[in-house]
């Protein structure tokens, strides 16, 4: 991160002779870590990324890492508005992929003949999130170029629609945006979601030999999920 480094800032400029290794006098290189004093000093001026009064949209691919039964993946989009340089509100829409998390369900099926396709599955979810743009910085990944970044805590609530019913939930997390340009960025959100959902385990109703249960027979329960979204975001 920028703040942990002692930078040499180099200016690009037109020159009219052949380029070569330019030797800067040793005594001119940065040796102080203290900051100059200004009246009403701010950390950065003439920011590259301005979000005030701008709309942001993004498309993403996401995963619920802790989901054992249903398919972990989803696709979705964010649409939101930045009403200040510090705050934004985003609507996060997700379409959950159908099917099951076969890594576990296939094993359960082969060993115990448990058929989790009988359980009601998540279809869509929509969450409203407040994003606090707590940190604006820049990072040099290659030591040859610079990317701006935003880091923002996320707090929100919403609903997830299953086949038979809608379930409420809340999430909290943190997001990063790495800007390729003033408008485009790579957006990554990591959220911890606490929500209601139907428990896919229903006694005496899950084996292929058992009668097919109604979705309403599955009991509701509160669960924690860890969700990661990765996408591309545009701000305009």
């Amino acid at each position: 991160m920028k703040n942990f480094l002692i930078p040499i800032i180099v200016l690009f400029t037109q020159i009219s002779i052949a380029a070569e290794v330019i030797e800067l006098p040793e005594e001119e290189l940065a040796k102080e870590t203290v900051l100059p004093r200004f009246d009403n000093a701010v950390t950065v001026k003439n920011k590259n990324i301005i979000t005030l009064n701008k709309i942001e949209t993004s498309v993403y691919f996401g995963w619920n890492f802790t989901e054992p039964i249903y398919n972990q993946s989803k696709m979705g989009m964010n649409v939101g508005y930045h009403w200040s340089e510090d705050s934004a509100f985003m609507l996060n829409f997700a379409k959950w992929s159908g099917g099951l998390n076969t890594q576990y369900t296939d094993q359960l099926y082969s060993q115990y003949k448990l058929d989790f396709s009988r359980a009601p599955k998540p279809e869509y979810s929509i969450y409203g999130n407040y994003e606090l743009k707590a940190y604006y910085g820049k990072i040099s990944l290659t030591k040859q170029g610079v990317m701006n970044l935003h880091l923002y805590p996320i707090l929100g609530a919403g609903i997830t629609k299953f086949q038979h019913k809608n379930y409420f939930g809340a999430n909290v997390g943190v997001g990063w945006k790495f800007y390729f340009s003033k408008n485009w960025s790579l957006r990554t959100d990591l959220k911890f979601q606490f929500s209601q959902s139907p428990s896919p385990f229903l006694k005496d109703k899950m084996k292929t030999t058992d009668g097919v249960p109604l979705p309403s027979e599955f009991q509701d329960k509160w669960t924690y999920s860890t969700i990661f979204d990765l996408g591309v975001s545009a701000i305009f």
């Binding site: 040499i8 800032i9 200016l11 900051l35 040859q144 610079v146």
Partner: peptide, 24 residues
């Protein structure tokens, strides 16, 4: 041990005084 941060238009407080002109 130094970092190279090309100037890209924005000014940071901790960069003031650390700019180096590389033109000739």
């Amino acid at each position: 041990g130094y970092e190279y941060w090309p100037f890209d238009g924005e000014y940071w407080l901790d960069e003031i005084g650390n700019y180096h002109y590389l033109g000739k």
